[in-house]
Computed example of a mutant assay.
Amino acid sequence: MSPGIVEAIVASKEAALVLSLLFTVVACTAIYRIWKSREAQQDKMTAMLADLLKEMARLTNRLLEKNDG
């Protein structure tokens, strides 16, 4: 923020309202970024779980074949 904007906010009668609005915007941005990050992590975890299940199925199949033969 430039010094002129800061001085205008401080001199304003609604300084608390403006600061509250700025804080809310920053908080919303942070929450949105966390949500997007969680979404990306969730996709990675889903893929990892699918790979793990495939590997478990393959190993179970090999174990069953080994016991039958």
Score class of each variant (00 low, 15 high):
Asn61Ile: 09
Gln41Ile: 08
Lys44Trp: 10
Ser2Trp: 09
Ala15Phe: 03
Asn67Trp: 13
Ala30Asp: 02
Leu49Asp: 01
Asn61Thr: 13
Ile31Trp: 10
Lys13Ser: 12
Thr60Met: 11
Val18Ile: 13
Ala50Phe: 05
Ala8Ile: 05
Asp51Tyr: 00
Ala30Gln: 07
Lys44Ser: 10
Ala47Tyr: 13
Arg62Thr: 04
Met56Gln: 09
Ala30Lys: 12
Thr46Asn: 08
Trp35Thr: 00
Glu65Phe: 06
Arg33Phe: 12
Lys13Asp: 08
Glu55Thr: 05
Asn67His: 06
Lys54Val: 11
Val10Ala: 01
Val18Asp: 02
Val25Asn: 11
Arg33Lys: 09
Ser12Pro: 02
Ala47Asn: 04
Leu53Val: 01
Ala15Lys: 12
Glu65Leu: 10
Thr60His: 07
Lys66Cys: 06
Val25Trp: 14
Asn61Ser: 01
Lys36Tyr: 06
Leu22Ser: 02
Ala27Val: 11
Asp51Ala: 04
Ala40Pro: 02
Leu59Tyr: 09
Phe23Leu: 13
Val6Asp: 09
Leu52Pro: 04
Phe23Met: 10
Leu52Gly: 02
Gly4Lys: 12
Ala27Leu: 15
Ser12Ala: 09
Trp35Asn: 02
Lys54Ala: 05
Ser20Lys: 12
Leu21Trp: 04
Ser2Thr: 14
Asn61Trp: 10
Ser37Leu: 10
Ser12Leu: 06
Leu53Arg: 13
Leu59Gly: 00
Ile31Leu: 06
Glu65Arg: 12
Lys44Tyr: 10
Leu64His: 13
Val6Ile: 15
Gln42Ala: 02
Ala40Asn: 10
Lys36Phe: 13
Thr29Gln: 11
Leu52Met: 07
Asp51Gly: 06
Cys28Gln: 12
Glu7Ser: 12
Thr24Pro: 09
Thr24Gly: 03
Val25Ile: 15
Glu39Thr: 15
Leu17Ser: 14
Lys36Ile: 00
Ile9Glu: 00
Glu65Val: 01
Val25His: 11
Arg38Pro: 00
Arg38Ala: 00
Asp43Ala: 15
Ala27Ile: 04
Ser37Gly: 07
Ala47Gly: 04
Ile9Asn: 01
Leu59Lys: 10
Leu19Ile: 05
Met45Ser: 08
Ala16Trp: 03
Glu14Arg: 14
Leu22Cys: 09
Asp43Glu: 14
Arg33Ala: 00
Val10His: 05
Lys36Asp: 10
Phe23Cys: 07
Glu14Lys: 09
Gly69Asp: 14
Lys13Ile: 05
Lys66Gly: 00
Leu53Ala: 05
Ser20Glu: 07
Leu59Glu: 01
Lys13Ala: 02
